[in-house]
Design a protein around this nucleic acid. Structure first.
Lengths: 209, 209, 209, 209
DNA sequence: CGATAACCGAGACGGTACGTCGAGTCTTGGC
DNA sequence: GCCAAGACTCGACGTACCGTCTCGGTTATCG
């Protein structure tokens, strides 16, 4: 996934030379690392304070507020950093690719840091609509589009029915795993065969033949 | 859903009659109304403070804390109150019941107050683990169990395959609609035929015959 | 000197009964004590922070801000508390009373706490004109009027010339000692005979006979 | 008063010629002008920040810190610059010189900028001990010594008694006018005859003949 | 009927974190 | 090496809520 730097929204790439001391890359890194460490250490969302982050990062509070207007904005960037690229098509056919995609979601939901982010940060989004949109634009949408590309290929290969809306197909395939990732426990994602079972089940249909 | 009164945790079922002035039913109503009004008025979750609720309800803070140990507990009750009862089986067979159940989820996701709850309150849950657990226990679980009962009946009627885990069947049927409810726009839920399309699609299977 | 409580300016003596928990007298005392202790401990004015006072007093910052709008207002009250009543007339005649008054000023300028207050707090006043006025009204003016009464009595007794403005007489008698108190070192005030020398010198005149 | 350049404390009198670009005289002027403008514009002492000065002067903060080690040092120089030279002896005798000196103090207390300095800056001195000491050393002391010289001459001329401590004589003559300058309103200084009245009163004595 | 006990609104209490501001230092590119 | 600009760490500011604790006063039941 391609993500802009946190200052992307200020569009500072002006023709005139930038003046003054440039922002410290090290400080930025320290902030990200501090947040991820705190998260990994079991800190819940409401315990995650800017003051705590600043202290853990060895950074002044102003250095954080210079980059992000509030806690949520910082988290969106943390989230973006943690998202890993989706798997490339395996070349073994569309069904295998669909399973791989679903299994990627399952593994991502299991990964400790990623799961914390997926749950906690995502949860805050409805309080800050513009951040919700930013997250959807930068994280959800690219993935959804990759999924749709995959689905269209599967339709071409005859693995998926052509008479259904691709959006619907996507939700039917991805919804269950994401639902489990967000709402339920990790234990519900541990079965390594889960992705195959899900994909095959919806492919074949839940009704008896 | 049937929910205990907020005083449930104080173990009021003592043999001896309670002495002193009883708690004011009016105050309780005022609190609930205030929270719902604030929510409807666009107050985001993080702006929803106990002090604000007390002021809006014309109630002392202690009157709130006398009933709920903390903000999370109050929110669980508010959320529970907003949940509407699930539809009774229609008697037209398991397939119709499944569609009805999915469509109920769709409509619930569209309802203004319910949506606020589903999104905002649910979103905060991972920040507030107790709220998350309480919500799962009191809201999600009963519904899930109703769903599982429905699914078992559908298996008995031969509408669903008997060789799949009922939990998996449930997630495959409910996951897509909940995924859309939580993550996407309301517009994705507007199609009145959506529930039927989803259920029939997964019943028949996404693979061409 | 008669001093109102710090909340005097809110005029809370309303007919309607005051509601809510009353302000803690103990907290107020703790705040005053903390400031005086810090001052006595050599803390300079710019090192004297509200946070430090709150910590030293074992009190929340809000408890201070509830009583005084800012640091300077708090100091005016601290100053008022520290001011001690002026000496009563000795009954030995106007000249002795004048010397006693000047010597009182000298001793006051020597007293550790009082001096700190006289210097540091007084120094801040020109930044906050209304506080300057309050201080003048509540501390300086009563003293000045006591001095003028004394002077008028001295005129009646024939100790002071009747052809001079009483204000001028007051400043000529009190100015030198206050000038030394404010601007110079403590060492300039140590001579126990200083007051007598000053009064007698200006009474007799500085010109040779 | 003659004041060293602000760089005095950096010991610039090195034998080897200074290398690199010399300090900008214009920047220095801009800084002084900015401070005086801000003062004249009603800025109180505690609102007078280095950042504000730098911005108003169109100068970098480092340019200020390169010249003065801290805010207090800058203020000492600003204060020194504002002090105007004392009057030369008039040649009309010691009494006239004493009156002229006291009247100079009176006029200085009335002058707008000088008064700002005398009151506001002086007021802060006890908060900022270094500033206090520097001010005493560079402003008060020379003036006091000039006053003492004058007094010694007056003693020689037989205008002042020889049996009194010159320091005491100085404080008795200057104290009243300085006391009025610092503590009271400008209106108390407006009488153009005030200096003469004060000097003559203390010369003749306050006791009736 | 009076005492007792738990309730009520109001608001102060000690804390914690907020987001801002300024101090004094450091680091850019440019003169 | 100086300059303007603006980043840096640090620490205090004054505000807002948290959850608790008095206040004076109001219903209830119990004795």
């Amino acid at each position: 996934m391609k993500t802009d730097s946190p200052t992307a929204d200020t569009g500072q790439a002006c023709a005139a030379t930038r003046r003054g001391r440039p922002r410290s890359e090290a400080a930025e890194q320290a902030i990200f690392t501090a947040v991820e460490d705190l998260m990994a250490g079991g800190t819940t969302m409401s315990e995650l304070t800017i003051e705590g982050i600043a202290t853990a990062a060895g950074v002044g509070k102003a250095t954080i507020y210079r980059r992000w207007p509030n806690k949520e904005a910082l988290l969106v960037d943390v989230v973006s950093r943690l998202e890993v690229p989706m798997p490339e098509p395996t070349g073994e056919g569309a069904r295998a690719d669909l399973i791989e995609m679903v299994d990627y979601m399952r593994r991502r939901g299991l990964a400790k840091r990623s799961r914390w982010v997926l749950k906690a940060a995502f949860g805050q989004m409805h309080s800050l609509p513009e951040l919700h949109n930013a997250y959807r634009e930068r994280v959800v949408k690219p993935r959804r589009e990759a999924g749709l590309a995959l689905i269209r290929r599967a339709v071409d290969e005859g693995v998926l029915r052509a008479d259904l809306d691709p959006d619907l197909l996507g939700d039917l395939l991805m919804g269950p795993i994401l639902y489990r990732s967000i709402l339920w426990d990790d234990s519900d994602l541990e079965d390594p065969d889960l992705a195959r079972a899900m994909v095959d089940s919806v492919l074949q249909g839940l009704a008896p033949r």
